[in-house]
């Protein structure tokens, strides 16, 4: 009989995924918010059905639209998620407030313990921020714990702030991905799903796995 069990944690080590999703008004046109919702839903469904894991994938969604950022989905083990409530697009692009929420979450050791694997932050946006975002941006990129996260970004359409999004990414093998259509959004989330799933099954879950975005489709339409 194992006698040291009472000293051992009875929860798996978390692998947190935090999605910062642009839900500003411009996302409501040309099927962008629908594509984002489908991408998120498919990703969460895929994580929830994962087996052979070396980590517990946890998902959080922070939205920035309307007049403020919101914790749309608190950090939750994927296998406990029953479904995904579609996001609605409206209003401004308060990215700075969303970045602050993400920083607070990552720096909080009660929310993400030290035994957790390195978090993944995914930023998705189709426009320019409309609040004071520079200070929260620097804080997230340079925070004691948040600086250690893996950061992916996707710019949607021609009006995305490519410079800011490019500065956000920190994986040399996964620079900013530019989505030209709804199918690109699906491809991006599929790649994120595969990257995180590969990490969660790896013997070294802290090692980043590259985003492998599959080829496009001739029937794609452009925004």
């Amino acid at each position: 009989m194992v006698q040291l069990k009472k000293f051992q944690e009875q929860t798996a080590r978390p692998l947190p995924i935090i999605v910062l999703a642009d839900t500003s008004g411009s996302m409501s046109v040309e099927g962008k918010i629908e594509a984002l919702n489908k991408g998120l839903k498919d990703m969460i469904t895929s994580f929830a059905s994962e087996s052979r894991l070396r980590a517990e994938i946890q998902v959080s969604v922070i939205t920035f639209g309307g007049s403020q950022a919101a914790l749309s989905l608190p950090l939750t083990p994927a296998h406990q998620l029953q479904g995904f409530t579609p996001l609605l697009a409206d209003g401004m692009t308060p990215l700075g407030a969303a970045l602050s929420l993400a920083s607070e979450m990552i720096e909080d050791k009660d929310c993400i313990p030290s035994r957790a694997y390195r978090p993944v932050i995914v930023l998705v946006s189709d426009g320019y921020p409309t609040d004071d975002w520079q200070v929260p941006f620097e804080r997230l990129l340079n925070g004691e714990r948040s600086s250690k996260a893996t950061r992916f970004a996707m710019g949607i359409g021609a009006d995305a702030d490519v410079s800011m999004l490019s500065d956000f990414t920190n994986d040399p093998e996964a620079p900013l991905f530019r989505a030209e259509n709804a199918r690109d959004i699906h491809r991006f989330f599929r790649a994120v799903t595969m990257s995180v799933s590969a990490r969660s099954q790896s013997s070294t879950p802290n090692q980043p796995t590259p985003l492998q975005i599959t080829g496009g489709d001739d029937q794609d339409w452009e925004f």
């Binding site: 194992v2 006698q3 051992q8 798996a12 080590r13 894991l53």
Partner: peptide, 13 residues
């Protein structure tokens, strides 16, 4: 060795 092989934390690797 027996204790370590019987480690009980889920998903430990």
């Amino acid at each position: 060795t027996t204790e370590l092989h019987g480690w009980s934390t889920p998903c430990h690797g």
